[in-house]
Computed example of a mutant assay.
Amino acid sequence: MPHTVGYAPGVYDLFHVGHLNILRHARSQCDYLVAGVVSDEVAELAKGRAPMVPLIERLEIVRSIRFVDAAFVETVPDKLETWKQVRFDVIFKGDDWRGTPKGDRLERDFETVGVGVVYFPYTVHTSSTQLRSAVERLAAGHGTTG
């Protein structure tokens, strides 16, 4: 019987329902789900700022979600390099990647190693960026920085 390994990478900063939905949907489409938790350094490289929640805490949160069979710390931005370490059959991304240069590149790269790319609906009403902005506004309004 085939055993499908899925991979759901993300920063998972300020964990919210959108993250939970991606992991839930991903787990429903594979036999074993590995959540890739992006390191602080790689997240800062990709997003231009460090996550608010430290890696060790983000890893613990994601590892504790019942849909996740294993958590893996992503320390390189190249997903093919990560694949060489994890060896998954399908990678899951939010559909905000679909049809973008980075999504097209992801699909091309993974086609070369037989890995499928599956997109899930992006939760537009809740995002870590919005949560971060709200926290920063609150902190600024109270004269605190952290």
Rank of each mutant, 00 (worst) to 15 (best):
S128N: 08
A134C: 01
V115T: 09
R108C: 06
V118H: 05
E136Y: 13
S133F: 05
S127I: 05
V118C: 02
V115K: 03
F120G: 02
V117N: 05
V117M: 04
L131F: 09
L131T: 10
E107V: 14
T123H: 13
V135R: 03
S133T: 04
S133D: 03
R108T: 13
E136A: 11
L138I: 13
V124S: 04
T126L: 12
T126C: 08
R105F: 12
V135T: 06
F120D: 01
T112C: 04
E107A: 14
D104W: 14
T123R: 09
S127Y: 04
T126K: 11
R132A: 06
V115G: 05
R105C: 07
E111I: 08
V113M: 05
V115E: 02
L138C: 09
L138F: 12
R108H: 12
V113P: 01
D104K: 15
Q130C: 04
Q130R: 10
E107R: 15
F110L: 13
R137M: 08
S128F: 09
D104L: 15
V124M: 03
T129I: 07
G116L: 09
G116H: 06
F110N: 08
V115Q: 01
E136T: 10
T112L: 14
A134H: 07
G116V: 03
S133L: 08
D104P: 08
V118K: 09
G114E: 01
G103I: 11
G114H: 01
L138R: 13
R132Y: 06
T123S: 09
F120T: 04
S133K: 07
D109T: 12
H125D: 09
S133P: 00
F120M: 08
V135I: 14
E111M: 11
V115M: 05
H125W: 10
V115S: 04
T129D: 01
A139V: 09
S127F: 02
R105D: 14
V115Y: 05
T123D: 03
R132N: 01
T129Y: 04
R137L: 07
D104G: 11
S127Q: 01
V113E: 02
P121H: 07
A134E: 05
R137V: 07
L138G: 09
D109Q: 13
Y122M: 06
Q130M: 11
A139I: 09
A140V: 00
V117E: 02
V115P: 00
H125V: 03
D109H: 10
V124P: 00
F120H: 10
F110E: 01
P121C: 05
F110T: 03
G114L: 05
E136D: 11
R105A: 14
P121Q: 06
G114W: 04
E107I: 13
S127E: 02
D109E: 14
A139C: 12
V117Y: 08
T126A: 09
S127W: 00
L131M: 11
F110Y: 05
D104T: 15
R132E: 00
D104F: 14
R132F: 07
E136S: 10
